[in-house]
Write a protein that binds this DNA or RNA. Structure first.
Lengths: 83, 83
DNA sequence: TTAGAATATGCGCTGTAGCGTATTTTTGGG
DNA sequence: CCCAAAAATACGCTACAGCGCATATTCTAA
C-alpha cells in the first residue's frame, strides 16, 4: 500500500497504479488538475524534469501524499540497477 | 521522524531539517549532488518549479526517501491555509 | 477481429529551472 | 559588537517542461 519511491520512475509508477485503482483515465485526471493528458503521461512514465508543482497537484487529485523519511528500511532493488 | 509532505514547502522543510541534522551546509550538499548552493536554497524554500531530478538527487544525498501513500492518516494543517 | 477508448508522441511556442558567476544579507560563535 | 561562514539573491544564458493542437499507437471489450 505504502510505496517506497526513490526515483522519478518509481513515483510515476505509484501514481499510475493509484489512478487506475480510482478508475480514472489520464484525460480525466488531467482535467481535475488542469494539466494535459500528455503531461500526465509524462509524469507517470517518470520524466525526471517533472516539476514539483505538477507532481503535488497530481498527488492531491489522487488523494495521495508523500512521506519523507530516512532510508533506513529495506527497499527493493531498482530495475535500472539490474540491467 | 517520518515527515508528511504534501506541498513543495513541506518537502523543502523536511530537506532542510535533515541537512542540518547531518551538519551540512547548502554548499557542501550542493557539491555532493553537483548542483549550486543557490539551487539547494531554492529547493529548501519550496520552489514549486523544482524538478523531480533535482529533488531525488538531493534526497539521495541526504539518505532520505519518499513514501507514496493514500492521505488517510491525519496531517497537520498547512500554514498557507491558516493565513 | 475490430471499433472506440486510452495512451503515447510530434510540433512550435512561452515560461522558467538550473547554470556560472558574483554580490548582498543573515547567522551565530568569540 | 564583529566578523567569518552560511544563505539568499541577482543577471544573462541555455535547456527543457508544459501548453494547445493534432496525430499515431496501443489496449480493451463486444
Amino acid at each position: 500500500m505504502d510505496q517506497i519511491a526513490r526515483t522519478p520512475k518509481q513515483i510515476g509508477d505509484a501514481i499510475r497504479r493509484r489512478r487506475r485503482k480510482l478508475g480514472l483515465s489520464q484525460t480525466a485526471l488531467g482535467k481535475r488538475v488542469q494539466i494535459r493528458q500528455a503531461t500526465v503521461s509524462a509524469v507517470e512514465s517518470g520524466e525526471p524534469g517533472t516539476q514539483l508543482r505538477t507532481l503535488c497537484d497530481v498527488l492531491a487529485a489522487l488523494d495521495l501524499e508523500f512521506v519523507v523519511r530516512p532510508r533506513s528500511k529495506a527497499a527493493p532493488a531498482e530495475i535500472e540497477d539490474i540491467f
